[in-house]
Design a binder for these strands. Structure first.
Lengths: 212, 212
DNA sequence: CCAGAAGCTTGACACTTGTCAAGCGCGAAT
DNA sequence: ATTCGCGCTTGACAAGTGTCAAGCTTCTGG
């Protein structure tokens, strides 16, 4: 009887702790999301915790309650960003029934991404560059890079499959190519070059049949 | 007579002014070079003028004598970096008499660059990312990007020429590909991944015959 | 040789930064 | 109802930032 009671008490204690943990984690993500807004606006170099706090519903002290320091916060941001980013084209890949359909779906998403999420993507490139200086970022960044490479590979494989062929390049080369093209287009787009998006689409449209 | 004298005086005045200008510019470049050291070490975000000065033979005040502000200094750095960077492969391109020779020369330089000049190149990627946030950098960065694209194109054209063919891709796509591969290899190399350089070389060796 | 400019150093300024300790309110457990 | 502790705010701290003015040294033209 007493034994059962303590067991129940234990279970309750564990349950409440799990609940607290979940709540804690949810808040962390909320804060990370707020931080991403400001980071996307200003870039890593110019973003301070106070600036982040001011552009959000929180005060600057909270961030030190939920994160051990600034790097911890930004690592959390990067990891959170990843989850959103990596699945962007999956719906197109699984639903497309022909090369044309896949191509058009991919290009449309590509254009929309460049148009609507330029800020998040320039932040990604910023943080990836930071990882070259700051070892603390490297693990997460390399992991995301791998995920993005896999994402591109899924598209290329499906494209090849729909034509009964196999991709003509390695996953690394394909990712490098698309990433390079996207990065360059993003910079031009941000410099108010209206040709950036159409040129990127043309390039990709031309490339897909030759390399996949 | 008097007229001649004033003309001579004018010429002298002009000459001294030109000399002063050259001296001024030489100093600017000297300072920019010193700044590049620290920038390559710490990255844009963590580099302050005082830090730059401390890692050099100068005091922090000089930088304000020669540059209107921090952005001006860094723009000068970027421009100076460009001049060094863009001609890296030209000797190989002009001297190679066969595809093999060009390939091996290119790969050797590529490996050496990654090995010896990793810091300068991570800085380049850093500043290119900064240009996505800071409009003041964009013009110079876009210009350098164009130069680098042309540099890759010279290599590819020569490679194709030596085999009696023509490059199979656009300059933009080729540059994106090589830049993407290099960037990824650089990050891995900086993360102490010993396979980074050989993997890059393998990839490029495989790629050259298929795309050029 | 000397006045004045050029080149450079120094120190101060106003401000921002990350960090943290003290304390507040409020809900939950006792 | 009281106590306790979690979540959060506030304010302060030292360190570091870009900028600039005042002054020192060195060179140079007259």
């Amino acid at each position: 009887m007493a034994r059962q009671a303590t067991r129940v008490a234990q279970r309750v204690a564990v349950a409440t702790e799990v609940l607290r943990d979940e709540k804690f984690n949810a808040r962390r993500i909320e804060l990370a999301e707020a931080a991403l807004e400001t980071l996307g606006e200003l870039g890593f170099a110019r973003t301070s915790l106070r600036e982040i706090a001011q552009n959000s519903a929180f005060t600057h002290g909270v961030f030190h309650y939920y994160f051990s320091d600034k790097l911890d916060l930004i690592c959390c941001c990067v990891r959170h960003y990843k989850a959103k980013c990596v699945t962007r084209y999956d719906e197109v890949v699984t639903s497309a029934q022909s090369r044309d359909e896949l191509t058009e779906g991919f290009l449309a998403k590509l254009a929309a991404t460049l148009q609507d999420e330029a800020r998040m993507h320039r932040l990604w490139y910023d943080l990836r560059s930071q990882a070259m200086f700051e070892a603390a970022f490297r693990k997460d960044v390399l992991e995301i890079d791998k995920s993005l490479e896999a994402m591109i590979w899924r598209i290329a494989s499906r494209y090849a499959e729909l034509g009964g062929t196999r991709p003509a390049s390695s996953p690394a080369a394909l990712y490098a190519l698309f990433d390079g093209l996207f990065q360059s287009a993003l910079l031009k787009h941000l410099a108010n070059d209206d040709r950036a998006i159409p040129e990127l689409l043309d390039e990709v449209r031309r490339l897909l049949p030759t390399i996949c």
